[in-house]
């Protein structure tokens, strides 16, 4: 067992390094002083960070990403929490079918979803508009919110709601003072997760953008296709910093692994 155990541990470490390495090399590379990106970097400078400020398309794309991610997360949380509450609390017929339906956008390839929405939106004059973009992003965020809020509700004690009602609180007060505070962690992690899903998305966005409206991952994607530019390293590092900050919060509330666990597909 000992040699096998060691071998297993060694492969496991190699595997973990394999998962992390593409992210780990990006940050050092962004501090290069050369005119091309490399790992290990040559010299040290912040020039590729200050150069982001000279590229208005990146700044604009960043604020677009932020704006859409906040709005998509808001609507996904709104629709998703109501839906998850309904499924968890009421004896609705066809419950499991409804749950599968609400998480179905996860099983359809994002490429196919993007194509379907582009073709559908074009005659409706929604293609390339903010509204179209937002709708597409809400669709891809909803399944995660449903899943997280359902998990959050799985241990929920409905006697607390009953107690509130017996003590004379109206249903709205019961929801506001009892239900909501108890499922708040699940809602917050659902929202953060939805935010990151939207903020990171490329595939669906590719079909929803217009020349005037682009997001940060799209800018990175097209810059990478055109040229090998160190500015991609610094912009990518900014994306990593934002993601890490949100991951830390998510991990504190919910546990990042649990979000993906359960093997649903």
């Amino acid at each position: 067992m000992n040699t096998i155990g060691k071998l297993r541990g060694a492969i496991a470490i190699i595997g973990i390094i394999y998962i992390l390495i593409p992210l780990v090399v990006v940050i050092p590379a962004s501090f290069t002083s050369a005119s091309y990106p490399s790992f290990p970097p040559e010299g040290f400078s912040f020039q590729w960070y200050t150069k982001i400020l000279e590229r208005p398309e990146f700044i604009e794309a960043f604020f677009n990403s932020l704006k859409f991610a906040v709005m998509a997360a808001f609507f996904a949380v709104l629709f998703g929490t109501l839906g998850a509450l309904a499924i968890a609390k009421y004896e609705i017929p066809g419950k499991s079918a409804i749950t599968s339906f609400l998480t179905a956008p996860l099983s359809v390839p994002q490429l196919v979803l993007g194509i379907a929405l582009l073709i559908y939106f074009t005659p409706m004059m929604l293609a390339g508009t903010s509204t179209g973009f937002l709708i597409a992003h809400i669709i891809i965020c909803i399944p995660y919110v449903i899943r997280l809020v359902l998990t959050g509700l799985s241990g929920f004690d409905y006697n607390l709601e009953k107690a509130g009602a017996i003590l004379g609180a109206n249903p709205l007060t019961v929801f506001w003072r009892i239900t909501l505070p108890l499922i708040r962690p699940a809602i917050i992690s659902g929202g953060l997760f939805a935010f990151l899903t939207s903020f990171d998305n490329v595939t669906v966005s590719l079909f929803m953008i217009s020349p005037e409206m682009r997001t940060l991952p799209i800018e990175i994607f097209s810059t990478m296709q055109d040229a090998y530019n160190p500015i991609v390293a610094s912009v990518s590092s900014v994306v990593i910093f934002i993601s890490v900050a949100l991951i830390v919060i998510l991990e504190k509330i919910h546990g990042v692994g649990k979000v993906f666990g359960g093997g649903h597909h």
């Binding site: 973990i16 998962i19 992390l20 390495i21 593409p22 992210l23 780990v24 090399v25 990006v26 590379a29 990106p37 490399s38 790992f39 997760f193 990151l196 903020f199 990171d200 998305n201 490329v202 991952p217 990175i220 994607f221 990478m224 090998y228 991609v232 390293a233 990518s236 994306v239 990593i240 993601s243 890490v244 949100l246 991951i247 998510l250 991990e251 546990g255 990042v256 692994g257 979000v259 993906f260």
Partner: peptide, 25 residues
């Protein structure tokens, strides 16, 4: 818990960023 965090976190970083890391390598 540490391993779970290490392996699941990259899923929350945009795929283009991970691909750029591979470009460097």
């Amino acid at each position: 818990a540490i391993i779970t965090l290490l392996i699941a976190s990259p899923l929350l970083v945009s795929i283009v960023v991970r691909n750029f890391g591979w470009y460097l390598l």
